[in-house]
């Protein structure tokens, strides 16, 4: 491309100067008396500030009450022994020491990573492929877009129940169909080999369409001149995909990966409905639930929740650091 294009810095400088311009008092409208004008200005600024806080309040209060406070309470509870019924007893780091000897927790961490590895690559690649297909000019494109997003709109618990039926080895639809072509289907949900891949595939099926939406939005913001220019230069479609599409999709990719990795570390409802954590499908989040509500160890469950929080935080930071270096928002 021979036409010089403005850099990101040029653009942001332009925006900044425009903003500053509009903040300046308009000639003609401004008052002549400087003292009064300053007071008015101060009052106006105060009002703007109050307005801003007022508008922020609902979400800040919501965040504080429903997110920040519970997080603080969970961290505090992780140093206590509590069965919900009696008063909590402070035990220092005992819960964290118990963690080291808890085979179930260690297994749960392993199961969680296994699930994330099954879930994320498949879901991301499929979503990207779908987005590419539905970005092309094909018939009934919008209908397809809606169809792929539908599973995401349904309730995970209800879907889990339906899939559990489909995966039933004797009465389920899947093995019945496999039987028709002479294949003896396995016991999907009660086999340690199959249970986790089945759960992961149900979640992939459910969230691929939703993930696709972000890729689709990302694809539509890539200027088509880039592809035209590449065509002129004789670049192959594959080359265009890896050199133009993929790099310019990085903002979408970052959002998709960060949010879906967090979501998949927290998987719960599908597991609860389909296997109740049996057959090596108990993820860390599921173990939190079991410890809290089956064993009444609210303190220890909080400890596991803190560990899960730390793992997610660490992985998110790594992802953000990775993408920050490699992402451009400048599409021009």
């Amino acid at each position: 491309m021979s036409i010089p294009s403005p850099t990101a810095d040029d653009v942001s400088e332009g925006i900044m100067s425009t903003l500053q311009e509009s903040a300046r008092p308009q000639p003609g409208v401004s008052d002549n008396r400087p003292g009064e004008r300053r007071a008015l200005h101060r009052r106006r600024r105060l009002r703007t500030t109050l307005e801003a806080y007022g508008l922020l309040a609902p979400s800040v209060i919501g965040f504080a009450v429903f997110l920040l406070a519970p997080i603080v309470i969970v961290i505090a509870l992780s140093f206590y022994d509590w069965n919900f019924l009696s008063s909590p007893e402070f035990i220092g780091l005992q819960n964290y020491r118990d963690l080291a000897d808890d085979d179930r927790a260690v297994d749960a961490i392993g199961n969680t990573f296994y699930y994330v590895l099954l879930n994320i690559p498949a879901q991301t690649v499929l979503a990207l492929l779908l987005a590419l297909a539905l970005n092309a000019k094909i018939k009934a494109r919008n209908a397809f877009r809606v169809i792929y997003v539908l599973p995401w709109m349904a309730m995970p618990v209800a879907l889990g129940v339906i899939w559990r039926w489909l995966f039933d080895p004797i009465y389920g639809g899947l093995n019945t169909m496999l039987g028709l072509v002479g294949i003896d289907g396995p016991n999907w949900l009660t086999s340690s080999t199959w249970a986790m891949p089945v759960i992961a595939s149900v979640n992939v099926w459910q969230f691929t369409g939703y993930t696709m939406l972000f890729f689709l939005a990302g694809l539509q913001s890539i200027p088509h001149q880039l592809y035209e220019a590449a065509d002129v230069d004789g670049a192959s479609k594959a080359y265009q995909f890896f050199k133009i599409t993929l790099p310019l999709l990085r903002p979408a990719m970052m959002f998709v990966l960060v949010t879906s990795v967090i979501g998949s570390f927290q998987v719960f409802d599908t597991i609860h409905v389909m296997t109740a954590g049996q057959h090596e499908t108990a993820t860390l989040n599921y173990e939190v639930f079991l410890q809290a509500f089956t064993h009444r160890n609210a303190g220890y469950a909080s400890t596991l929740a803190v560990v899960l929080f730390a793992i997610i935080m660490l992985i998110t930071l790594i992802q953000v650091a990775f993408f920050r270096k490699r992402t451009t928002y400048d599409f021009s």
Binding site: D168, P169, Y171, T190, M274, T275, A276, Q278
Partner: peptide, 22 residues
């Protein structure tokens, strides 16, 4: 009725298998 279909808590209940003729 095999445990793959009846193991709790995800599986069906005994009375459901009797009622459905299984």
């Amino acid at each position: 009725v095999p445990a793959t279909s009846t193991n709790q808590p995800a599986g069906g209940l005994a009375n459901e298998f009797v009622s459905s003729g299984q």
